[in-house]
Amino acid sequence: MTTIDKIAWLRIEDGRLLGARSRGKDVYYLPGGKREPGETDLETLAREIGEELTVDIEPGTAVHVGTFEARAHGRTGGTVVRMTCYTADYRGTPAPAGEIDELRWLTYADRDRVSPVNRLIFDHLHESGHLR
């Protein structure tokens, strides 16, 4: 089994979660990405969010929400995604950059438009009253 280790930013406002759609993809993902060798979770979070959304994460405000695992979207075999999720404050205005084509505020009604691991996160946020 192959595991893809990813770090994600959970930005929730008014019961909606910020989602990103990458160029050529048919589902929304949570902003974030894969760790570079030697990076900590928070270093990965800050780098990826800066690259994808042009904002600066404030690492001192980061709170671990949970770690979730599910099969990888669009991959064959036993590939699994492990998504470690954080909330954090930021400076700037989120805008799509790099491979990101679109940003969208998602609600629980959008659950069928996200990857399998994100469905677990949507369920968790909905059950805890954070996602409407």
Results as ranks from 00 to 15, higher is better:
I4P: 00
D5T: 01
A8M: 03
D14Y: 04
D14P: 00
L17V: 03
A20P: 00
G24E: 14
K25F: 04
D26M: 09
Y28W: 10
Y28M: 07
Y29E: 10
G32C: 11
R35V: 14
E36V: 08
E36R: 15
P37F: 09
G38N: 05
G38F: 07
E39Q: 15
T40P: 08
T40R: 02
T40N: 05
D41F: 06
D41C: 04
D41A: 08
L42M: 07
E43A: 09
E43Q: 14
L45M: 06
A46L: 01
R47S: 03
E48P: 00
I49Y: 03
L53G: 02
G60R: 13
T61C: 02
V63G: 04
H64W: 11
V65H: 02
G66V: 02
G66P: 09
R71M: 06
R71P: 11
H73W: 15
R75I: 05
R75F: 15
G77A: 10
G78F: 06
G78E: 13
T79N: 03
V80N: 02
V81L: 04
M83Q: 12
T84K: 15
Y86T: 04
T87I: 05
G92Q: 06
T93H: 12
T93E: 15
G98I: 07
E99S: 14
E99L: 14
E99P: 03
D101C: 03
D101E: 12
E102N: 02
T107S: 15
Y108C: 02
A109R: 12
D110C: 04
D112F: 12
R113C: 10
R113G: 01
V114M: 11
S115G: 05
S115K: 14
L120M: 08
I121V: 15
I121D: 06
D123E: 13
D123S: 08
H124G: 05
H124F: 14
E127P: 00
G129D: 06
